[in-house]
Nucleic acid binder design. Sequence first.
DNA 1: ACATTAAGTGATT
DNA 2: AATCACTTAATGT
Length: 216
Amino acid sequence: MVNEIHFLREKLDQQFTGVFEENLIDEIVKTGYLKHIDAGDLLVDIGDEMTHIPLIIKGLVKVIREDQNEEELLLYYLEKGDSCAISYVNCIHHSQSMFRAIADIDTECIMVPVNKIEEWLIKYETWRVFIIDSYHNRLLELVDTIESLAFLKLDERLYKYLKEQVNVTHNKILTITHHEIAQDLHTSRVVISRILKILENKGQIKLGRNRIKVKA
DNA sequence: ACATTAAGTGATT
DNA sequence: AATCACTTAATGT
C-alpha cells in the first residue's frame, strides 16, 4: 500500500511537478488510483456515466465521436500531462459521455474521483488553472478539426492527419491501415487508398502493407 | 493449400 | 468524393 502511494507520487511528479502544488499532489495520491489501459481498450464509451477524471501519465488516447451508423470521426488526442475537461462537466452533472476514448497504445492514467473536483477548484489555484487550460485546449483542438472539415479538401486533410500521427506517435513510420484512416476521417477506404497513392507518387510518403512512411 | 485481410484500380454516379 | 465490382498481394491457419 505504502509502495503504491510512492509509485503514484513518482508518476505524478514526473508529469505534473510545476503544474500542481505539493499539497494538491498529496491529495491526488491519497484519493486517486492508477489505471492501466491496454492498447485498443476503452477508457470511456459513449453513454458512460463518469465517476472519475483521468490524468494521463503516459500513452496516447484517441477521442472519437460516433454517429447512428457506427461511423466514426476522430476529434482529438490526449497525451501525457493531459486530461479531458469535457469529463469534468459530465461528472458534475452526472450526464453521459458523448464521446468514446480509446487507448491507441498502452496507457496509464490516474483516476480522480468526482467529489474532489469541485473541492479542489476552490482550494487550489493550480488545479483551477489546470482545469480551465485543459478545457481551453480541448476547445482549440475541436476548432482545429472543424476548420479542417470545413475548409480543407480531403487530400489536405489526409496529409495533415498523417503529420499529426507522426507527431503523436513520435515515429515517421506509421503502423496503420487505410481502413483505420478512413474511419478516423469518416470517409471510405477506397478514397483513402487513392489519395495515398497520389501522395506516394508525389514523393511525400512511402506505402507498405500496414505501414506508411512519412517523408520529412 | 486455403481462407482472410489489406491494398490497388477502372468504371459509374 | 462515394460506391461497386473486381484484382492482386500479403499474411494467418
